[in-house]
Design a protein around this nucleic acid. Structure first.
Lengths: 189, 189
DNA sequence: TCTCTAAACTAACAAGTGTTAGTTTAGTTT
DNA sequence: AAACTAAACTAACACTTGTTAGTTTAGAGA
């Protein structure tokens, strides 16, 4: 755990503000005020507002990609892969709640990195859907519309950032288990 | 079906733009361009940008409140009330996809009407949660954490606006049925 | 033809936007 | 003591923002 640089502090503060009002509604003066400095001083540490957004979103997106790659390479049942996906989302979200808000709500304001982000997202969803389809083929999962199953799971998981901060008492493992029960218990044969 | 006034056209166009980039990132000049007119001309029909947001969000929020009131007064099982909630979301979303995006993502930019919106939302969630709790008491529903069940259902339903436009071929009834199967089938005893 | 009206226009405003340039401050290293 | 460095500052820029005021246009009703 490296010590937090001033740049990291700025990015973390920005994440919090972006979560509350969205990227476009947060000005560099808002961010500076939250840091207790003047707007121009921010530029000693970062190059642009856009760079902050990119730093927040891309690193999380890559965490998801890495996690998914590990999961698809694992030799287990498809149900257990889905459980791993739930855990992946709970873990990533639990340690970067604010950043997840930007990933969900402000990705379209990425400029140079927009295409790269969309590529990662599409690959992620393709992998997710394949696990469900193979689960259905293997009779592990009910023969419902696989896209609806993925949609239902993924939107729930993507919204965790709204829910986790309200339940500080609940630990990540318990939450992942309860969620798996609700989300997967339902589609299990 | 009254004919659409110029004001309605503006609100509908605004909904579409707000869905794509969010309220704060859409300028009055963007909106005017999309309408094929100049920004100042918008003010012949509307009083402010804020009024547009209010018109979009509050009317939908009230539709949900009305729908929920009908459901809680109906004399059926709690499971069937949950199915009605799914249908309510599918129907409202299907005929105002763009508006649902603002309701989900831009409610915090409401000014005068923010408290009213939050009141409606809180009441809605309280009613939703009560149905689940009563369903558990009556052994209609698995004894899982009721808040997690609501969270899972509600976030899925709130994200329908992203999903419905991609599946024009699927009709609202089929979607509501499939969704109920996935969402409720899982928690049914 | 004259008047009315819906809906567009041009021009401008005051405030707010992201960002740059150059300077000051205070602590650390040589 | 001198030099360096991280991190703040003031001042300003060019541009964009929502909005207002006053004017023009074109079609409908009298």
């Amino acid at each position: 755990m490296k010590t937090e640089t001033r740049k990291d502090e700025i990015i973390n503060t920005a994440s919090k503000l972006f979560k509350e009002k969205g990227y476009s509604a947060v000005t560099m003066r808002d961010l500076a005020t939250a840091m207790g400095i003047k707007a121009a001083s921010l530029y000693n540490h970062i190059n642009s507002k856009q760079e902050i957004l990119k730093a927040i979103i891309i690193s999380i997106a890559e965490e998801f990609t890495n996690g998914m790659n590990t999961i698809i390479q694992s030799e287990t049942s498809n149900i257990s892969k889905l459980e791993s996906i739930v855990t992946l989302h709970v873990n990533i979200t639990a340690n970067n709640t604010n950043g997840m808000a930007s990933l969900n709500n402000d990705w379209m304001h990425l400029e140079d990195q927009l295409d790269y982000y969309l590529q990662l997202r599409n690959e992620y969803e393709d992998n997710f859907l394949n696990i469900i389809k193979e689960g259905i083929s293997a009779s592990e999962i009910k023969n419902s519309n696989p896209e609806i199953i993925m949609f239902s799971m993924l939107t729930t998981l993507r919204s965790l950032y709204l829910w986790i901060p309200k339940k500080e008492d609940l630990n990540a493992n318990d939450l992942a288990n309860s969620l798996s029960e609700v989300l997967i218990g339902g589609i299990n044969n």
